[in-house]
């Protein structure tokens, strides 16, 4: 009897753990997509180099942590540095691109990816950098009986939710947030009302870069810190903002969580389910292929249902 009960309980625990994994990937994607969707929605700029800020955040944090041993200090340095780099990029490159069409923007920001990848190679060399979880976060926590979860990943989830809360308050309760939202809806009108749209753009871009830098710095201890690391997360980030609706922070939040879940659960369970249903090697391959496509299939379904995403920003 007990073994009959054992299987479902055990599967349920695994499912809960995978839900947590999905949540954790989701908040990471949210940190990335919040900035990207703002830039996309407000400035109408396609910024492919957003992943580079993620990489810079990770590199700076890894370097500071290697020298000082302090994770908090690493974050404290990485965030302003990526924000500063972001604003510098806005002032020197993107500012010239606002009036150009999207193809020019894609070309220029694609070029920036190469520039930043090569720059990190010149500064830090070709070898990936080392960054470890701080000792006080290196344990696994038993959340429920039978569910062990790395405490560092719990921190990532907490930070992501705090940032979401912070952005919510920023946009709903502050004057700056109001201006940014207004800018996303109708920039000519905002400019006509006497708001310095140029400064606003620089600030928004800096904020987006900062969030990407935060994501990168938080990812440093679990991932390889290497040139080009931003591109792998960038693709999912674009999926998130397309699903969520371009220019919408709420859409980015919901989209990120959903994409995180779909990707994680798909990878975790689709191959097994296919193996249960059809017992053959072909089913195995199909399950694998579907698992890696799950996110994109999901995106296609959402777009068929809501072509402008789940929460399209008004005025776009």
């Amino acid at each position: 009897m007990s073994s009959v009960h054992f299987v479902p309980v055990f599967l349920m625990l695994l499912f809960v753990e995978q839900l947590l994994n999905g949540l954790q990937l989701g908040v990471m994607l949210f940190l990335m997509s919040a900035g990207l969707t703002l830039v996309f929605g407000i400035m109408q700029v396609v910024n492919l180099a957003h992943g580079s800020f993620y990489m810079i955040g990770a590199y700076v944090a890894a370097t500071v942590m290697l020298k000082s041993g302090s994770f908090v200090l690493a974050l404290a340095v990485a965030l302003p540095v990526t924000a500063a780099v972001g604003m510098l990029v806005e002032l020197t490159v993107l500012r010239r691109l606002y009036e150009r069409d999207h193809l020019d923007q894609v070309l220029a920001t694609f070029g920036l990816i190469f520039f930043f990848n090569e720059l990190t190679r010149m500064i830090w060399g070709r070898q990936p950098l080392f960054m470890d979880v701080p000792p006080w976060l290196s344990r696994t926590v038993e959340l429920l009986p039978g569910i062990y979860y790395p405490s560092y990943r719990l921190l990532i989830i907490a930070v992501g939710i705090l940032v979401a809360l912070f952005l919510y308050l920023l946009f709903s309760r502050t004057r700056l947030g109001l201006q940014i939202r207004a800018g996303a809806t109708n920039r000519e009108m905002v400019a006509a009302m006497g708001i310095n749209i140029r400064v606003l753009y620089t600030l928004v871009f800096g904020l987006g870069a900062l969030l990407a830098g935060l994501a990168g710095a938080m990812a440093g201890p679990i991932l390889a810190v290497e040139a080009g690391m931003g591109e792998s997360i960038l693709i999912l980030t674009f999926v998130v903002i397309v699903i969520g609706g371009i220019g919408s922070i709420r859409g980015a939040f919901v989209g990120a969580l959903v994409v995180g879940m779909v990707d994680t659960l798909g990878r975790a369970f689709l191959p097994q389910i296919f193996r249960l249903l059809f017992d053959s090697a072909a089913a195995d391959r199909l399950g694998l292929a579907l698992a890696s496509m799950a996110v994109y299939v999901f995106m296609a379904l959402i777009l068929a249902w809501k072509p402008r995403g789940l929460f399209p920003a008004p005025g776009n």
Partner: peptide, 12 residues
Amino acid sequence: SDYAAELASLRA
């Protein structure tokens, strides 16, 4: 880059 899902299945 992220292997959390695979590691959970592996542990199980």
